[in-house]
């Protein structure tokens, strides 16, 4: 008992210290949204060839456990082979070349109404005066919490 008396202060502090680690009562969103082009209408698919002057509907399916917030689509050239997609398949890339007038598409959109599933559907006309070759197409989506998911696809623009 003498021992307890001697170390009472220490024990007290340890008990206080360990009891401090309380649990979270409110729930926080720990899930990222998801994004996929792996369904029939998903567009573009890996190694898709896009024709100049044509109009395409870029489609991807996004979902979240709570509420979706925004999405974006970015099309840029990969003439220098600086990156590759994350679809698991590899396309044959054309020889490395410089850019003269590459196609750049960068747009952001909001998803209103706190939806948990949504189909991205963006209509893009490929201009006639741009460089043909390897392009990179990336989708990204955020939820209301600020979690983000991305996916990217290698495509080609041809004459």
């Amino acid at each position: 008992m003498k021992w307890i008396a001697k170390y009472f202060n220490l024990i007290l502090v340890i008990v206080l210290f360990t009891s401090c680690s309380s649990d979270d009562s409110n729930t926080i969103d720990e899930e990222k949204p998801t994004i996929s082009i792996n369904y029939t209408e998903g567009f573009p698919q890996v190694c898709e060839q896009l024709l100049k002057g044509e109009t395409y509907s870029f489609k991807a399916q996004v979902a979240d456990n709570k509420a979706l917030a925004s999405y974006s689509l970015d099309l840029h050239h990969n003439f220098d082979h600086h990156t590759h997609d994350d679809q698991g398949e590899t396309c044959d890339l054309e020889p490395i070349k410089g850019a003269v007038n590459p196609f750049i598409y960068m747009e952001n959109f909001e998803i209103e109404g706190g939806l948990t599933t949504y189909e991205i559907n963006i209509s893009i006309t490929i201009p006639d005066d741009i460089d043909i070759g390897d392009y990179h197409c990336s989708y990204s989506v955020t939820d209301e919490t600020g979690w983000q998911s991305r996916t990217s696809i290698d495509v080609k623009i041809i004459d």
Partner: peptide
Amino acid sequence: PTSNYYET
């Protein structure tokens, strides 16, 4: 990290 985008 917000839920908005700037130039994708």
